[in-house]
Design a protein around this nucleic acid. Structure first.
Lengths: 366, 366
DNA sequence: GTGAAAGCGCTAACAC
DNA sequence: GTGTTAGCGCTTTCAC
């Protein structure tokens, strides 16, 4: 409570050394003798001194922070990627500054603030299409940019082939003998350029064509990204009577949930009357036994963030492009096979007040 | 490409004014004549100049960023609060620096880095208990701290009364005539101090006692926060035969999903053989028609962030404590009433390629 | 109203 | 090895 503010100068004075030496100690330079190191460290400890971030940022010319642009953060798939990104950045000692982008205007606003003010050392864009002009500008300013769940030439990115995924999902249904396969997906959005659903749709069409089945647009429906909307759309498809689909590919598990719920309302048995496959392998698909296309969501985030870390450390020279693998996870909603009970994974024990499943890595209150 | 870096001095020189004037313009001071304002603004525009964040931070002594400490970010309820926080901060022009906290060690690490380096102007802790020593330190440094989904004396916080919520949920089941009511919740964790589930359990016990029903620990089970774990625990309760519960209060919707899924495996009809109520009113509860206790998740985030904004603007003097209201949302899993079809909410139209539900606020690709 | 100059707290290049 | 010093780019008195 004595000093107004305690800076590097205070420490230097107190320890009887120059500020340079203190700075060296702070930054782990080996140009410091054992003796002074100890002394300075001691003073720092005693004074409880911590260097001010903004000062060193200004001096060093970097912020040690990474901006994360996220499209519609509430979507579980986006969330999962974000978590992966944050974890890796955090481990690398980088701050994760998160920007939620719900529309084009926000995207522009955030981008300009991030880029122009140099708030961050690098930018990770998740499931987002960045306007060309911005890309150009970012390039010119030499700000590292990594794309997660998107792809652009000459830019480091973690790419997932949604077309292939859509194809795989549809082929799965085809392999089960289905011919009248419906598609339920997201509205195509021009503002944020999230094209995942449309790409999966393209894969769907390709698979059908390869199987010699022409597209039937009566079996195709799009809407907002919610279970409720999917339920409504599914309902419309079910009303087609004889012409109704025997299987539906929903471009995300969230939509698949709505489809299945609605099927139950219509007394359609899953998968006998209607087979369903979703996409993303969200937790909900596992618990509701919904077939799906697994994409490594968390991994896409960690991979992207790792790229960023490498870029910032100057370890990577040329833009790297990583493509993650997809795989169909067949479950009850298409196969009708009873899924394995998860019981085996857990050991239930008698706890102090009721039953308990102990979990690893956490201390339990006794 | 001429100048190395373009700073406030460049602008000043180019505009033929002093740096002070440019700074005034930048910060919207009214101490600038109309003429110079115009000229400086013009030069800024022409030079495409933007002030550097870290420089003004150092000078101003603030970062215009807020640190958000989040416990186990993957939980949907936590996510929802986070989204609320980010949105408000973003609108206020504050950067949201997110720290994911999975264990006590991480909490300490992040806290010390945030606090000591003054990376941020304020801290918002979501669903997290901050150790006393840290609170003391934060207080001493006069760093604004807001608690969301937690409460501490003399600290601004957005509080949700989980005990009351647990009581409400249990009373709902009691009111339906149930006497053998089970509880499935999270393991109590000492490291992060997330006590929501335990508080709801306390409410559950209170409601039972008020109804003259003694606790039966055979009907109580705890485990990790996942549907799978809940399913396993539910299974154990179902095996009690005659003594099995006729209703279950799951301390979160995520757990309720597991309970219901497992009930179906056991051929228990919902809600006739087993009534279920969850907590949080997550999207999944709506689509699966699960009764729940609604808590304004997003609002807790926005409220908390608003408090922070006020604090940083010096608008609030004493710590404010906001308590959000809870309400039971009775649905099919306890009442057995067919929920309203969401169909009415949406208008399905004939799109260019299949059916479509148009959504407001988004441009659709034609 | 406006310019000049003194910091803000740290880093890094340069001397010794 | 270590001290000294000149910035990093901006804000903010304080004169004029």
């Amino acid at each position: 409570m004595r000093k107004r503010t305690i800076s590097i100068a205070t420490v230097a004075a107190e320890a009887g050394v120059g500020v340079g030496t203190v700075s060296r100690v702070l930054n782990g330079s080996d140009q410091v003798s054992e003796a002074t190191l100890k002394r300075v460290l001691g003073t720092i400890e005693r004074l409880d001194y911590r260097p001010l971030r903004s000062a060193s940022s200004l001096s060093k010319g970097r912020t040690d922070a990474v901006g994360i642009l996220v499209s519609v953060i509430t979507r579980p798939s986006v969330m999962a990627r974000l978590v992966g990104v944050i974890d890796v950045l955090s481990d690398a000692g980088l701050d994760a500054v998160v920007f939620n982008v719900e529309n084009r205007a926000q995207l522009e606003r955030h981008l300009s603030s991030i880029i122009d003010q140099r708030r961050v050392d690098g930018i990770i864009a998740i499931s987002l299409r960045i306007p060309k002009e911005r890309i150009t500008r970012i390039r010119k300013l030499a700000i590292p940019l990594v794309l997660v769940d998107n792809s652009l030439p000459n830019l480091p990115c973690v790419y997932i082939d949604d077309v292939a995924g859509g194809k795989m999902a549809t082929e799965h249904l085809l392999s089960l003998g289905h011919r009248r396969i419906g598609f339920i997906g997201d509205n195509a959005r021009s503002d944020l350029g999230m094209s995942a659903s449309e790409n999966r749709y393209a894969g769907y069409l390709m698979a059908l064509e390869a199987a010699g089945i022409g597209p039937d647009f009566d079996l195709v429906a799009r809407g907002p990204h919610s279970s409720e909307a999917a339920a409504v759309l599914a309902s419309a498809l079910f009303e087609l009577g004889k012409r109704r689909p025997t299987a539906i590919f929903a471009s995300s598990d969230t939509l698949a949930v709505g489809v299945i719920k609605e099927a139950q309302q219509h007394r359609l048995k899953i998968p006998d009357d209607l087979a369903v496959i979703g996409y993303d392998n969200l937790e909900v698909s596992s618990i509701l036994d919904i077939s799906t296309v697994n994409q490594p969501l968390l991994e896409s985030g960690t991979k992207g963030a790792s790229m960023m870390v490498s870029l910032l450390n100057g370890e990577i020279a040329k833009p790297h492009r990583e493509e993650l693998v997809l795989d169909v996870v067949p479950r009850g909603s298409s196969l009708g096979i009873q899924r394995n009970s998860p019981t085996k994974l857990y050991g239930v024990v008698e706890g102090p007040q009721g039953l308990q499943i102990l979990q690893g890595g956490e201390e339990l209150v006794s």
